[in-house]
């Protein structure tokens, strides 16, 4: 564990808490569209469920296990909230990204490009590929509405930072422990790349107190 990875994981936690906070806030504003993509959240739940199949078999550390349990539980809880509790605030008309294509693509790629052709490894690889593109429905929704509430942009910023710090962590690990993991690196680079446009607008507008609006 290094500082980059630790802060990255903490940013990931922060993003989830921001999301939960936003959902609590949205509930009090009846009828308002939550502007959170259900599809992205459902994809994240799928990512965690398929990645942590080794939860009971492979013990790394208390930190590792606790985080895994938290990510699985919180992602399922968010999906539950959006699907049942706050269903009225979720507007499927804005959430139109074709998620089945990215799920299909990630599954096909995981079957072809993996480290070992075992059920667990293919599921793990699938989760890596799927995480890389899981934010697309959310970003697509943002493009469609053309604007975002400040709290939504903070959520995306926390997620983007978490991914960016993982890139730094891999460079650090490569030099300090000869750590190499091409599947994770390429998928991670793609994933971080997806946030570039968002980061640009976040830094040039939101942090200067302006509304998040697409040009």
């Amino acid at each position: 564990m290094n500082l980059f990875r630790l802060v990255a994981d903490l940013m990931h936690l922060v993003s989830i808490f921001i999301l939960l906070l936003k959902m609590q806030k949205t509930r009090s504003v009846a009828g308002r569209c939550s502007r959170i993509s259900f599809k992205t959240q459902a994809l994240y739940a799928t990512v965690f469920l398929t990645r942590y199949t080794d939860l009971f078999a492979n013990f790394q550390s208390l930190y590792n296990t606790t985080m895994k349990v938290f990510f699985i539980a919180s992602s399922l809880y968010i999906v539950f909230l959006m699907k049942f509790k706050f269903k009225a605030t979720n507007d499927p008309r804005l959430d139109t990204f074709k998620a089945q294509y990215v799920v299909g693509g990630a599954a096909a790629l995981a079957l072809i490009v993996n480290y070992a052709f075992t059920v667990q490894e293919v599921l793990w690889t699938f989760s890596i590929y799927l995480e890389a593109v899981a934010i697309l429905p959310q970003l697509f929704m943002l493009t469609k509405t053309g604007e975002a509430e400040v709290i939504t942009t903070h959520y995306l910023f926390a997620l983007g930072t978490y991914r960016g710090l993982y890139l730094v962590n891999w460079i650090y690990r490569y030099w300090t422990e000869y750590y190499v993991d091409w599947i994770v690196w390429i998928a991670g680079a793609v994933q971080t790349g997806l946030y570039c446009d968002f980061f640009y607008i976040y830094f040039t507008k939101v942090l200067k107190g302006a509304k998040f609006e697409l040009p």
């Binding site: 994981d9 790394q60 590792n64 990510f71 480290y115 993982y166 750590y179 993991d181 994770v184």
Partner: peptide, 10 residues
Amino acid sequence: QPDQNHHDEL
């Protein structure tokens, strides 16, 4: 290629 115990990241 990493060894089989490579999944130490979250």
